[in-house]
Computed example of a mutant assay.
Amino acid sequence: MAAPICKKKVVFIMGSTGTGKTKLSINLGSQIQSEIINSDKIQVYKGLDILVNKIPESERCGIPHHLLDIIEDHDYTFTSDDFCKHALAAIDLIHQNGHLPIIVGGSNNYLEALVENPNNAFRSKYECCFIWLHVSLPVLFQYLDKRVDEMVDAGLVDEIREAYVPGASYSHGLRRAIGVAEFDQYILIEKESHDEVYKEKMLQDAIRRTKENTFKLAEVQLQKIHRLNYELGWGMNMIDSTLVFDAILRGQKYMDLYQEIILKPSMNVVHKFLEEGTQEAP
Rank of each mutant, 00 (worst) to 15 (best):
V152Q: 04
A163V: 06
A181H: 15
S124T: 14
R161G: 06
F122L: 03
E116Q: 14
V152N: 06
Y170W: 09
C128I: 03
I103M: 12
V152Y: 08
R147E: 10
N117V: 00
Q142H: 13
H172I: 05
N109R: 15
L100H: 06
V152K: 07
N117Q: 00
L111Y: 05
G155M: 02
D149Y: 12
V104W: 03
V115H: 05
E159K: 04
F141C: 06
G179T: 04
Y143E: 02
K146F: 08
P138K: 06
E127T: 04
A154F: 06
L137G: 01
D184T: 13
F130E: 05
L137V: 03
G179F: 04
E162I: 09
S136K: 14
D158W: 01
F122A: 01
L111A: 06
K125M: 09
G98T: 09
G98L: 11
Y164L: 01
R176N: 10
V148C: 05
S169D: 07
V152M: 08
F141H: 12
G106F: 01
G105C: 02
P101V: 09
I178D: 05
P166N: 00
K146N: 09
R176L: 13
H99Q: 12
L111W: 04
F130L: 06
I102G: 01
I131R: 00
N119A: 14
A168Q: 08
N119C: 10
H134G: 02
L174M: 15
H99P: 00
A181Y: 15
H99I: 01
V157N: 03
G155Y: 03
G98S: 08
W132R: 10
I160Q: 08
F122C: 04
G106W: 02
A121T: 04
V115K: 07
A113I: 03
G105L: 03
A181K: 15
N117A: 00
D158V: 00
C129Y: 12
D145F: 11
N109L: 12
L144N: 07
V104E: 13
N97V: 04
A113W: 04
A181L: 15
S136C: 10
P138G: 05
H134A: 06
Q96L: 06
N119W: 08
L111I: 15
C129V: 10
L111V: 14
G98R: 10
V135Q: 12
Y170K: 07
H172R: 11
V135E: 13
V157P: 04
R175T: 09
L137I: 11
R176E: 15
K125L: 13
R161K: 12
L100P: 04
S171T: 13
G106K: 02
V157E: 03
